[in-house]
Amino acid sequence: MRRIGEVLREVWRRPRGAFGLVVVALVLLVAAVSLVWLPHPLLQSNPAERWSGPSLSHPLGQDGIGRDTLTWLMVGTQATVKVVVGSTVVAALVGLPLGAATALLHARVAEPLIVVVDILIAFPTLLLAMVLAAPFGGSLGTVILAVGFASGITISRITRPEIRKVAKADYLLASRAAGAGAVRRLVGHILPNVAPIALVQLSIVAAVSILAEAGLTYLGYGAPNGMPSWGRSLSDSQASLQVAPLAVVWPGLAIGLTVLALNLLGDALREATDPRLRRTRQPAAGVITGVA
């Protein structure tokens, strides 16, 4: 596990990585704080002050029924954390075993699987969510399942070549040991080698899941009415377009900043874990790189 510490330090050294880590930490902190403290009670509303702009007691103003916008965004952070954690876990649970199966199983089994993966990869996440929502209704669970499954397919395709490479190198080693020992050793060898790529992909899944929550909630398949979430706040703000355009800004800003942070974190992770990229940053003597 020393390696994870090293990677984190590499990420932290890059401005993009540091920005990503800080924002992610901030989101987690706000989610934690919102469990024990809020500027205003969640359900307190004052219809007389509906759509009021920023003030000292309501720094981000109040919504259409006079609830405190900041309070709702803070509690909405919890939904974001749930969606992110759920989606990445499902994506990893679907993607890594599928990647391993397509990489390691006999070609007669693996090849049809690969074709299936190549086809399913085109299935839009949102349509999958809608298909799930038609019989079951919308919820954060719908978002998590749809994003997790669709992203898992992508992860399986990206990790497959890496798993193959490692497995080939370990083939002799593994074949010497028999039975379950070989399988365990294979997993023990493969997982640490695939972890960097998987980590980068999972940071992308995290970003995608936040965007998906916003889109799906808007369409009515994500956070149900009355549940605090950033997507919910964004959807509800449409009603205020004419009276309080500023109300549109805050939830979008929260989503955009967090997604940006996760994307940048992914970039930094990629650079920190890909030795090829790291090398190109400091051209060695005599290495001829580009023209322009």
């Binding site: 970003a207 965007l211 916003a214 889109g215 808007y218 997507g231 964004l234 959807s235 703000s237 449409q238 377009l241 549109v248 939830p251 979008g252 989503i255 955009g256 900043l257 997604v259 940006l260 994307n263 940048l264």
Partner: peptide
């Protein structure tokens, strides 16, 4: 980088 991080709903509303 910034624009790619925006939810489409927000882009539309803005």
């Amino acid at each position: 980088q910034g624009l790619a991080a925006i939810p489409i709903v927000w882009a539309g509303l803005l």
